[in-house]
Design a protein around this nucleic acid. Sequence first.
DNA 1: TTCCATTCCGGCAACGTTGCCGGCAACCAT
DNA 2: ATGGTTGCCGGCAACGTTGCCGGAATGGAA
Lengths: 341, 341
Amino acid sequence: MEKPATIKDIAKRLNISLSTVSRALRNASDVNPDTKKAVMALSEELNYQPNKLALSLRQKQTHTIGVIVPNLDYVLSLMVRGIDEVALEAGFTVMVCQSNESFGREILNTRRLLESLVDGFIISVSSESKSFDHFKKIQERNLPVVVFDRVTPHLTAPSVRIDNEEGGFVATEHLIEQGYRRIAVLAGPENLGVSNSRMDGYLNALKKHKIKKDPALIVHCDFNQDYAYFATLELLAMKKRPDAIFTISDRMAIGAMLAIKKKGLRMPEDIGLVGFNNEPVTSLVTPSISSVEMPSFELGKAAAKLFIETMHNKENMDLEEKILKPKLIVRESSQKLPIKK
Amino acid sequence: MEKPATIKDIAKRLNISLSTVSRALRNASDVNPDTKKAVMALSEELNYQPNKLALSLRQKQTHTIGVIVPNLDYVLSLMVRGIDEVALEAGFTVMVCQSNESFGREILNTRRLLESLVDGFIISVSSESKSFDHFKKIQERNLPVVVFDRVTPHLTAPSVRIDNEEGGFVATEHLIEQGYRRIAVLAGPENLGVSNSRMDGYLNALKKHKIKKDPALIVHCDFNQDYAYFATLELLAMKKRPDAIFTISDRMAIGAMLAIKKKGLRMPEDIGLVGFNNEPVTSLVTPSISSVEMPSFELGKAAAKLFIETMHNKENMDLEEKILKPKLIVRESSQKLPIKK
DNA sequence: TTCCATTCCGGCAACGTTGCCGGCAACCAT
DNA sequence: ATGGTTGCCGGCAACGTTGCCGGAATGGAA
C-alpha cells in the first residue's frame, strides 16, 4: 500500500504483457473479454491510477490550463471559480497565478506556466503591462490563448469580457437622470483598456445628454483605494467641484466615499457616487453605493468554454469575441430623486 | 521556433552523446570545459528548457504542492499568497483547490491532486468535514501533509495556526472591560475546531471575570452572513437579550450588524460587537466593527516553510505545531467607554 | 490438406531525462 | 615497456505509458 500500482504490476500478477493490460484498461478492442475482466478486477483491487506524468509525456498534453490574473479580489476569484468549474468538467486542471498587477511578475508567471507545460492560457492582463511580448511568445509556440475581462487590443486572441462601454454609459446616464450635471470620473491607469472603455461610455452619455466634457473632471489614478481617496480630495477642493463621481471600480469608489465623508459632504444630496463591480461591500457601507454589476461567474465559465473550443479547432481560429452585459444596481449613494412607481 | 528544444537536439547538432549534454548542463564534473561551453552556448541559443514532465517521471518528484482551502476569502487568499511566496522561492509550484466548504468536494480535490502526483499537501479543512480518511490516505502514501489555520485533532500532522483561544479570550475580555455583561457568542459549526477554540477563549474570559455562562447565549450556526443574521435576530428577541455579541468570523459579524441595525439598536451603546479576522470591510461599515486580527500572510509563509522542512526530514516527523498570536483591533462597535489616556 | 481470415496477444520503440557502468585514450610513474 | 591513474565520453536501462506491427492459434471454407 506504499507506491501506487502500475500497469507493470498488473501485468506481472496476471502473467500477461504490458500492452494487453494497457488495451484492456482503455478500449476493449482486440482483447479477450475474460482477460479484460481479470484486468479490470485487479486494477480495482490495486486501486490503479494511470500515471499522469507518463501519459502527458507520451501524448504531449498535460490537460492543464494556465490562468494568469492580476489579483484574486471578489470578481476575479468568482471568475476563476467559473473557469475551474468548466475546466474540471472537461477534464482539465487549472493552475492559477497572480501577477499582483506587476508586469515583471506576469512575465515570471508566464514562464513558470510554460515550463509546467500547460496546454494553453486563460489570461486577464495586469494593469501595469504595456508590452505583451511574453504573451505573444506563447502564441508562437502554437498554444491556445484566451483573454478575459481585461482584454487589450495589443493581443490578438479570442476573448470574453463585459460591455464596459455600456457599463460606463448606464452608470453615467443614471447620474444624469438623477439630476447631477458636473460628473467626474475616476479612471484607472491610462493604458488599461477596461478603464478606457468605461470612460468612453461615460463620454458617450455626456454627449447624448449634451453635457460638455470637462477635462478637469477626468482623473486617472492607480487602481487603488488610497489613490482614489486622494484624487477625490483634490476633486472636491476644486472651485467648481463635481456634483457626482463615477469610479471605474468599487475599490476606488470606497476611497472616494471616504474622501467625501472626510469633507463632510452627504451622499446622494451633495454628491452622487457610482462604482463598478458590485462587490458585496457596496451594499454594506453607509450610504450603500450604487454599482455596475457584471456576471463574473458566467464570464469565467464562458472564458473556459471558449478556451476549450479554441483548443479543439486551432485551424479555425476565428478570433471569437464574447461580450456579456453589465447591469446597474442603484443604491443610496446616487438615488437623489424619489423612486418612481 | 515551434517545438521546444530537447537534449537530443543539442546532442545532434554538436555530434556528441545525450549523456554528455546532460552532464554538461548539470554538474560540470566529468566533462571537458570546451564541450561544456559549447553545450551551454547552444542551449542558450535554442532556448533550451528541461522538460519538467520527463524530469518528474524520472526522479519521482513533481515539485508541486497541493493546497486545499475551504474558500478564497480575504484571509485565506492572503494565506495562499504567503504559501505561494515561500514555495516559489524554494522551487515549488502550488496547485490551489477550493473545497467550497463541501466535504465531497474536498475528497474530490484530494483525489485530483493525488492524481496530479503532487509531492505533498498543505490543507485547511472544510467546515463540513467530519471524517478525515481521505487525508489519512495521503499520509499512508507517505506524502508530507501540513495543516494550517483550520486544524483538527483528528488529523495527526504538523500544523500552523493562530492561538484561537487567545483570540476568543481577548475579544471577550475586551467586551467585559467595556462594561458588557450578557455576552453572546455566535459560533460556527460544532465540529469545527477553530470555532470551538475561540469559544473556549470566550468561556475562559467569562470564568476569569466571574460571569456565569448562559447556554442560551451560545449559538452555533453556519459560517455565513445570512445564518448569522437570523441567529442574531433570535438572540435579540430574547426576554433578557444579550448586550454584546462576539462572532467567530467577520462575515458573521456583518450578519449580526445588519440584524442589530434592523432592530434599531445602536452600537456600541445598546449592544457591543466584536468579530474575527479583521477583514477590510470591518473598518468601512458604520459603525466600524472591532475584530481580532490574525497575521494571515505570515501564517501562510510559516505553513509553507513547515511543509518544506517536513518534506526534507520525513524521518524526524516531530509533529511540530506552530502557533502565531492574534491581536484585537478595537473600533466603534465595542468602544463604549471613553478612550483612556 | 491447404489457404485465408479472425481473434488475441506480445515485443519494440518512443516521449525526455538521468544514473550507472564501461571504455578508450593519454599521461605519469615505476 | 608495463601498469595504473585520470579525464572524458558513449551506451544502456529505466521512469510509466501507448501505438504499431507482427505473429501464433484457431476456425472455417475450398
